[in-house]
């Protein structure tokens, strides 16, 4: 399996405060990886550093090319979709406009309409609401919209920041099922940051555990799930 994203010695700073202390990990193509950790461990910062949304040093390579010097929008244009924490919905635009914005950098205009239809297949609830202002959707629906918007980029890699945050358990199950489907059927490599470790480990094939800005454990998701420390700290049994 080829490596899709390779991160080496990533350090990130908020002003004077260092949030990541030399993080290294890699994602192989087609994998679904989860990044686990407690509050403040640096999960969100890791995703933001990959997209250059926070001051950072270290080497980030995407499909073999270094991307550390690119602006956020140019990282995205390479095919890296980032679903941020809090979803980043364009609340005063319609659902359909949000989806179109996801594809705004694509040259193949003809396929966009078809792709929007595909998103409606994945997330039927969006179809019912396509003329509605996105701000009027419920939290779960907005999360669906955020994922759909990211997929409209036809990304090679998708970064998701706590997609389960604030959602009802049933909705989370549904969302994760769809993420698995996207990973298998559309061959999108996925990196998902989660606090809901149990669900994330069920879904993922690879897992990393991060503590205070450092990777402390990595491996096959099943092995990680069976690890004594992980079970105690993150799974609670």
């Amino acid at each position: 399996m080829t490596t899709m994203l390779n991160v080496k010695d990533l350090r990130a700073y908020y002003g004077q405060v260092q949030a990541l202390h030399g993080l290294s990990f890699s994602l192989s193509e087609g994998s679904l990886t989860t990044l686990l950790g407690a509050n403040g461990a640096g999960k969100t910062t890791t995703l933001r550093a990959i997209c250059n949304m926070v001051r950072s040093t270290g080497a980030v390579e995407f499909e073999g090319k270094p991307i550390g010097n690119r602006s956020t929008e140019n990282v995205v244009r390479l095919g890296i979709a980032h679903v941020p924490q809090g979803r980043g919905t364009f609340t005063n635009m319609t659902v359909e406009e949000n989806l179109q914005l996801g594809a705004i950098t694509r040259g193949d205009k003809k396929n966009i309409v078809a792709d929007i239809e595909r998103m409606y297949d994945h997330f039927p609830v969006l179809k019912q609401r396509y003329t509605q202002q996105a701000g009027t959707l419920s939290g779960g629906e907005q999360q669906m919209l955020a994922v759909a918007r990211a997929l409209m980029l036809r990304p090679r890699l998708m970064l998701l920041d706590e997609p389960s945050f604030g959602l009802a358990p049933l909705v989370v199950r549904d969302l994760f099922r769809i993420l698995g489907k996207i990973n298998r059927e559309d061959k999108v490599t996925i990196l998902v940051v989660e606090q809901n470790a149990q669900l994330a480990l069920e879904l993922a094939d690879q897992a990393y555990v991060i503590e205070t800005g450092r990777i402390v454990m990595s491996g096959n998701a099943k092995d990680v799930a069976n690890n004594e420390d992980v079970r105690k700290s993150y799974l609670g049994y």
């Binding site: 997209c51 949304m53 602006s71 956020t72 929008e73 140019n74 995205v76 244009r77 979709a81 980032h82 941020p84 980043g88 919905t89 364009f90 914005l101 996801g102 705004i104 950098t105 918007r149 980029l153």
Partner: peptide, 9 residues
Amino acid sequence: ESARLVGIN
């Protein structure tokens, strides 16, 4: 910020 995340300059 969201605009940058969909690739808008």
